[in-house]
Protein backbone atom coordinates (compact mmCIF):
# COMPACT_ATOMS: atom_id res chain seq x y z
CA UNK A 1 0.00 0.00 0.00
CA UNK A 2 0.96 3.61 -0.36
CA UNK A 3 1.98 5.68 2.63
CA UNK A 4 -0.63 7.72 4.47
CA UNK A 5 -1.15 9.55 7.73
CA UNK A 6 -3.07 7.60 10.32
CA UNK A 7 -5.47 9.07 12.86
CA UNK A 8 -7.50 7.30 15.51
CA UNK A 9 -9.91 9.84 16.97
CA UNK A 10 -11.86 9.26 20.18
CA UNK A 11 -15.10 10.99 19.18
CA UNK A 12 -17.22 11.53 16.12
CA UNK A 13 -16.52 15.26 16.28
CA UNK A 14 -12.77 14.60 16.29
CA UNK A 15 -13.21 12.28 13.34
CA UNK A 16 -15.16 14.85 11.35
CA UNK A 17 -12.43 17.41 11.97
CA UNK A 18 -9.92 15.07 10.30
CA UNK A 19 -11.94 14.77 7.11
CA UNK A 20 -11.30 16.71 3.92
CA UNK A 21 -8.89 16.36 1.04
CA UNK A 22 -8.13 12.73 0.24
CA UNK A 23 -8.90 11.49 3.77
CA UNK A 24 -10.74 8.20 4.06
CA UNK A 25 -12.61 6.61 6.92
CA UNK A 26 -11.59 3.16 8.10
CA UNK A 27 -14.31 1.09 9.76
CA UNK A 28 -13.82 -2.68 9.78
CA UNK A 29 -11.56 -2.53 6.74
CA UNK A 30 -12.83 -5.69 5.11
CA UNK A 31 -13.05 -4.04 1.71
CA UNK A 32 -10.81 -1.06 2.31
CA UNK A 33 -7.67 -2.82 3.54
CA UNK A 34 -7.50 -5.19 0.53
CA UNK A 35 -8.07 -2.18 -1.71
CA UNK A 36 -5.15 -0.39 -0.09
CA UNK A 37 -2.93 -3.46 -0.26
CA UNK A 38 -3.54 -3.70 -3.97
CA UNK A 39 -2.69 -0.02 -4.38
CA UNK A 40 -6.13 0.65 -5.80
CA UNK A 41 -6.63 3.62 -3.49
CA UNK A 42 -4.20 6.34 -2.45
CA UNK A 43 -5.63 8.29 0.48
CA UNK A 44 -3.29 10.78 2.14
CA UNK A 45 -4.97 10.25 5.48
CA UNK A 46 -6.85 7.41 7.12
CA UNK A 47 -9.21 8.12 9.98
CA UNK A 48 -9.76 4.95 11.96
CA UNK A 49 -13.17 4.91 13.63
CA UNK A 50 -12.21 1.91 15.80
CA UNK A 51 -11.43 4.07 18.82
CA UNK A 52 -14.85 5.77 19.08
CA UNK A 53 -16.79 3.91 21.73
CA UNK A 54 -20.05 5.78 21.09
CA UNK A 55 -20.31 4.21 17.62
CA UNK A 56 -20.69 0.66 18.89
CA UNK A 57 -23.60 -1.04 20.54
CA UNK A 58 -27.06 -2.48 20.11
CA UNK A 59 -30.16 -1.05 21.78
CA UNK A 60 -33.86 -1.62 21.52
CA UNK A 61 -35.56 1.77 21.57
CA UNK A 62 -39.33 1.49 21.52
CA UNK A 63 -40.32 -0.24 18.32
CA UNK A 64 -36.87 -0.13 16.75
CA UNK A 65 -33.51 -1.83 17.07
CA UNK A 66 -30.76 0.77 16.94
CA UNK A 67 -27.29 -0.46 16.05
CA UNK A 68 -24.14 1.62 16.20
CA UNK A 69 -22.22 2.00 12.97
CA UNK A 70 -19.06 0.35 14.29
CA UNK A 71 -20.91 -2.69 15.61
CA UNK A 72 -19.32 -5.83 14.16
CA UNK A 73 -21.39 -8.32 12.17
CA UNK A 74 -20.52 -10.98 14.72
CA UNK A 75 -22.00 -8.88 17.53
CA UNK A 76 -25.27 -8.41 15.63
CA UNK A 77 -25.40 -12.13 14.82
CA UNK A 78 -24.86 -13.03 18.48
CA UNK A 79 -27.15 -10.38 19.98
CA UNK A 80 -30.06 -11.74 22.00
CA UNK A 81 -31.94 -8.45 21.52
CA UNK A 82 -31.64 -8.60 17.76
CA UNK A 83 -32.52 -12.30 17.70
CA UNK A 84 -35.65 -11.54 19.68
CA UNK A 85 -36.77 -8.40 17.85
CA UNK A 86 -35.68 -9.09 14.26
CA UNK A 87 -34.37 -12.64 13.95
CA UNK A 88 -33.94 -12.24 10.19
CA UNK A 89 -31.42 -9.46 10.82
CA UNK A 90 -29.38 -11.63 13.18
CA UNK A 91 -29.44 -14.42 10.63
CA UNK A 92 -28.34 -12.08 7.86
CA UNK A 93 -25.41 -10.78 9.93
CA UNK A 94 -24.39 -14.34 10.79
CA UNK A 95 -24.20 -15.23 7.12
CA UNK A 96 -21.85 -12.45 6.03
CA UNK A 97 -18.43 -13.65 4.88
CA UNK A 98 -16.66 -15.91 7.34
CA UNK A 99 -15.89 -15.65 11.07
CA UNK A 100 -12.85 -13.44 10.44
CA UNK A 101 -14.91 -11.01 8.35
CA UNK A 102 -17.73 -11.01 10.89
CA UNK A 103 -15.33 -10.26 13.72
CA UNK A 104 -13.94 -7.21 11.91
CA UNK A 105 -16.59 -6.00 9.48
CA UNK A 106 -19.05 -3.36 10.64
CA UNK A 107 -22.60 -2.37 9.86
CA UNK A 108 -21.63 1.22 9.04
CA UNK A 109 -18.74 0.16 6.84
CA UNK A 110 -20.94 -2.19 4.85
CA UNK A 111 -23.71 0.37 4.45
CA UNK A 112 -21.37 3.20 3.48
CA UNK A 113 -19.55 1.01 0.96
CA UNK A 114 -22.85 -0.10 -0.61
CA UNK A 115 -21.36 -3.05 -2.44
CA UNK A 116 -24.09 -4.21 -4.82
CA UNK A 117 -23.71 -7.76 -3.49
CA UNK A 118 -23.51 -6.95 0.21
CA UNK A 119 -26.16 -8.29 2.60
CA UNK A 120 -26.85 -5.35 4.89
CA UNK A 121 -28.30 -2.98 2.26
CA UNK A 122 -31.08 -5.52 1.69
CA UNK A 123 -31.92 -5.47 5.40
CA UNK A 124 -31.97 -1.69 5.54
CA UNK A 125 -34.14 -1.35 2.49
CA UNK A 126 -36.32 -4.32 3.37
CA UNK A 127 -37.01 -3.11 6.87
CA UNK A 128 -37.34 0.55 5.92
CA UNK A 129 -34.48 1.44 8.22
CA UNK A 130 -33.05 4.90 8.61
CA UNK A 131 -29.40 5.85 8.59
CA UNK A 132 -28.36 8.34 11.22
CA UNK A 133 -25.26 10.43 10.58
CA UNK A 134 -23.48 13.18 12.45
CA UNK A 135 -25.68 15.58 10.50
CA UNK A 136 -29.06 14.07 9.71
CA UNK A 137 -31.24 11.04 9.33
CA UNK A 138 -31.69 9.49 5.89
CA UNK A 139 -34.32 6.89 5.01
CA UNK A 140 -32.90 3.71 3.44
CA UNK A 141 -35.06 4.39 0.39
CA UNK A 142 -33.07 7.56 -0.20
CA UNK A 143 -29.70 6.39 1.05
CA UNK A 144 -28.53 3.84 -1.55
CA UNK A 145 -28.08 5.88 -4.70
CA UNK A 146 -26.10 3.60 -7.00
CA UNK A 147 -23.31 1.08 -7.27
CA UNK A 148 -20.91 1.83 -4.39
CA UNK A 149 -22.70 5.17 -4.05
CA UNK A 150 -24.76 6.58 -1.20
CA UNK A 151 -26.33 9.85 -0.12
CA UNK A 152 -23.45 10.45 2.30
CA UNK A 153 -21.70 13.79 2.00
CA UNK A 154 -17.95 14.33 2.19
CA UNK A 155 -17.94 15.25 5.84
CA UNK A 156 -20.64 12.88 6.95
CA UNK A 157 -20.17 9.85 9.19
CA UNK A 158 -22.78 7.19 9.82
CA UNK A 159 -23.38 6.92 13.54
CA UNK A 160 -26.27 4.49 13.88
CA UNK A 161 -28.86 2.62 11.90
CA UNK A 162 -32.42 2.43 13.20
CA UNK A 163 -34.29 -0.73 12.18
CA UNK A 164 -38.05 -0.62 12.86
CA UNK A 165 -39.20 -3.95 14.28
CA UNK A 166 -41.38 -5.64 11.64
CA UNK A 167 -44.31 -7.97 12.21
CA UNK A 168 -42.33 -10.63 10.41
CA UNK A 169 -39.23 -10.76 8.24
CA UNK A 170 -37.08 -13.24 6.41
CA UNK A 171 -33.83 -13.19 4.45
CA UNK A 172 -32.75 -15.76 1.89
CA UNK A 173 -29.34 -15.57 0.31
CA UNK A 174 -27.95 -17.46 -2.64
CA UNK A 175 -24.24 -17.09 -2.13
CA UNK A 176 -21.64 -16.64 -4.82
CA UNK A 177 -19.68 -19.89 -4.45
CA UNK A 178 -16.34 -18.05 -4.55
CA UNK A 179 -16.80 -14.84 -2.60
CA UNK A 180 -19.85 -15.87 -0.58
CA UNK A 181 -21.30 -12.45 -1.27
CA UNK A 182 -24.93 -12.57 -2.38
CA UNK A 183 -25.38 -13.67 -5.97
CA UNK A 184 -28.97 -12.93 -5.06
CA UNK A 185 -30.26 -12.03 -1.61
CA UNK A 186 -33.86 -11.17 -0.88
CA UNK A 187 -35.10 -9.55 2.32
CA UNK A 188 -38.85 -9.63 2.87
CA UNK A 189 -40.59 -7.82 5.73
CA UNK A 190 -44.17 -7.46 6.76
CA UNK A 191 -44.46 -4.07 8.47
CA UNK A 192 -47.30 -1.90 9.70
CA UNK A 193 -46.72 0.25 6.62
CA UNK A 194 -46.95 -2.68 4.21
CA UNK A 195 -44.81 -5.47 2.83
CA UNK A 196 -41.30 -4.62 1.64
CA UNK A 197 -39.18 -6.78 -0.67
CA UNK A 198 -35.55 -5.77 -1.14
CA UNK A 199 -33.07 -7.48 -3.43
CA UNK A 200 -29.28 -7.39 -3.28
CA UNK A 201 -26.69 -9.01 -5.52
CA UNK A 202 -28.88 -9.21 -8.57
CA UNK A 203 -28.55 -5.69 -9.86
CA UNK A 204 -26.15 -2.76 -9.81
CA UNK A 205 -27.48 -1.84 -6.39
CA UNK A 206 -30.08 -2.91 -3.86
CA UNK A 207 -33.65 -2.43 -5.10
CA UNK A 208 -37.27 -3.12 -4.17
CA UNK A 209 -39.79 -5.10 -6.19
CA UNK A 210 -43.08 -3.25 -6.03
CA UNK A 211 -45.07 -5.93 -7.83
CA UNK A 212 -44.12 -8.52 -5.22
CA UNK A 213 -44.90 -6.13 -2.40
CA UNK A 214 -48.34 -5.51 -3.85
CA UNK A 215 -49.01 -9.19 -4.38
CA UNK A 216 -47.93 -9.99 -0.82
CA UNK A 217 -49.96 -7.20 0.75
CA UNK A 218 -53.18 -9.15 0.50
CA UNK A 219 -51.71 -12.64 0.75
CA UNK A 220 -48.40 -13.04 2.57
CA UNK A 221 -47.43 -16.43 1.21
CA UNK A 222 -44.88 -17.78 -1.23
CA UNK A 223 -47.61 -18.66 -3.69
CA UNK A 224 -48.71 -15.04 -3.87
CA UNK A 225 -45.73 -14.06 -6.05
CA UNK A 226 -46.18 -16.87 -8.59
CA UNK A 227 -47.68 -14.41 -11.00
CA UNK A 228 -44.94 -11.80 -10.59
CA UNK A 229 -42.33 -12.02 -13.29
CA UNK A 230 -38.89 -10.58 -12.62
CA UNK A 231 -37.24 -9.09 -15.66
CA UNK A 232 -33.60 -9.80 -16.36
CA UNK A 233 -33.18 -6.36 -17.88
CA UNK A 234 -30.51 -4.38 -16.10
CA UNK A 235 -29.50 -7.24 -13.81
CA UNK A 236 -25.88 -8.27 -13.36
CA UNK A 237 -24.35 -10.89 -15.61
CA UNK A 238 -20.95 -12.43 -14.93
CA UNK A 239 -19.15 -15.76 -14.78
CA UNK A 240 -21.14 -16.72 -11.69
CA UNK A 241 -24.58 -16.15 -13.10
CA UNK A 242 -26.34 -14.62 -16.07
CA UNK A 243 -28.97 -11.92 -15.67
CA UNK A 244 -31.61 -14.49 -16.58
CA UNK A 245 -30.44 -16.87 -13.85
CA UNK A 246 -30.33 -14.06 -11.32
CA UNK A 247 -33.85 -12.99 -12.27
CA UNK A 248 -35.02 -16.56 -11.70
CA UNK A 249 -33.23 -16.72 -8.36
CA UNK A 250 -34.89 -13.51 -7.18
CA UNK A 251 -38.22 -15.30 -7.21
CA UNK A 252 -36.83 -18.48 -5.65
CA UNK A 253 -35.08 -16.55 -2.88
CA UNK A 254 -38.11 -14.30 -2.34
CA UNK A 255 -40.25 -17.38 -1.76
CA UNK A 256 -37.71 -18.78 0.68
CA UNK A 257 -37.55 -15.45 2.49
CA UNK A 258 -41.34 -15.33 2.71
CA UNK A 259 -41.35 -18.86 4.09
CA UNK A 260 -38.69 -17.88 6.62
CA UNK A 261 -40.92 -14.97 7.63
CA UNK A 262 -43.68 -17.43 8.36
CA UNK A 263 -45.63 -16.69 5.20
Amino acid sequence: MYSFDYHRPRSVDDAVRQLGGEAKLLAGGQTFIPTLKQRLAQPDKIVDLGGIAELSGIKVEGDAVVIGAMTRHGAVAASAEVAKAIPALAKLAGGIGDPQVRNMGTLGGSVANNDPAADYPAALLGLGASVETNKRTVAADDFFTGMFETALGEDEIITRVRFPVPQAAGYAKFANPASRYALVGVFVARTPGGVRVAVTGAGPGVFRIGAMETALAGNFSAGAIDGVSVSADGLNSDMHGSAEYRAHLVTVMAKRAIAAAGG
Binding site: N176, P177, A178, S179, Y181, M239, H240
Partner: peptide
Protein backbone atom coordinates in the same frame (compact mmCIF):
# COMPACT_ATOMS: atom_id res chain seq x y z
CA UNK B 1 -11.11 -13.04 -14.95
CA UNK B 2 -10.92 -15.57 -12.11
CA UNK B 3 -7.82 -13.97 -10.66
CA UNK B 4 -8.69 -13.99 -6.97
CA UNK B 5 -10.76 -15.87 -4.42
CA UNK B 6 -13.57 -13.42 -5.07
CA UNK B 7 -14.12 -15.18 -8.38
CA UNK B 8 -12.19 -18.45 -8.24
CA UNK B 9 -14.20 -20.82 -6.08
Amino acid sequence: LSGSYMDYA
